[in-house]
Design a protein around this nucleic acid. Structure first.
Lengths: 117, 117
DNA sequence: ATCCTGTATCGAGATGTGTCAAATTAGATG
DNA sequence: CATCTAATTTGACACATCTCGATACAGGAT
């Protein structure tokens, strides 16, 4: 579950977009992450997961949406393969949590000037 | 050119994702913007435009890519309709520039804590 | 007016994506 | 082992998106 066969886009890099023209390779990696959050349901899922301090059970993620459980599962997989969340099964339930560093990196890519954090 | 018939997603709003679960409506607006930068060519276009202080001529945007001019034009349109760039024709050439506030808002949505800028 | 160049739009084809029902797996419990 | 629930995977379909060539448009130059 947390071990992927295809290790996808793990460390998302890159200086702010406005600093220098991004390379084609970096653009491919970053675009995959932005594409993952370029869907309303996935953005809400990410926000739901991120809004909890620790982790979120999938059982709490299917309720708020008007799509089927397989669809939620599909979107969670996209977020996971984009390196934005990770998950683990514990007993009957599966828990998801965000990867704050990944989100922070995306944030900094879009930031207009480099900020000290 | 800079006046769109369909005024799309002008002010992109929203608190950081992790602060509270985003509303479905806000998610729809934001996702459209993220989707726009969820393509490698559009991300590179945006970076190319943002890397210049003022504005960038389309004539300088077709060279770096291995796609046709109509395709570049299409991607620029997507960026424009997402509210991330704006454009103007002056004489023979068309110039594009970024809308820094829009990018900054997206950056803050992904930021892990609210930062004073 | 006529041409030429830069950019956008149109139309079409190939590929990708979101969604669901059905089937499958993982684990708990009887 | 059988059975139940939680979650994922599979397969299929409708729809969106990326891309191009052809065409149209805007403006400058002849």
């Amino acid at each position: 579950m947390s071990k992927q066969l295809l290790p996808v886009s793990d460390p998302v890099c890159c200086a702010p977009l406005a600093q220098e023209p991004i390379s084609a390779e970096d653009a491919t990696h970053l675009a995959r992450a932005f594409k993952a959050i370029g869907d309303p349901i996935r953005l809400r899922l990410l926000s739901l997961i991120a809004s909890r301090d620790g982790e979120t059970c999938v059982c709490d993620l299917t309720g708020p949406f008007e799509v089927s459980a397989p669809t939620i599962s599909h979107h969670l997989k996209v977020l996971r393969e984009a390196g934005l969340v990770d998950s683990e099964r514990r007993g009957t339930w599966v828990y998801y949590w965000t990867k704050p560093q990944a989100l922070q990196r995306l944030s900094q890519v879009l930031a207009q000037q480099t900020l000290r954090v």
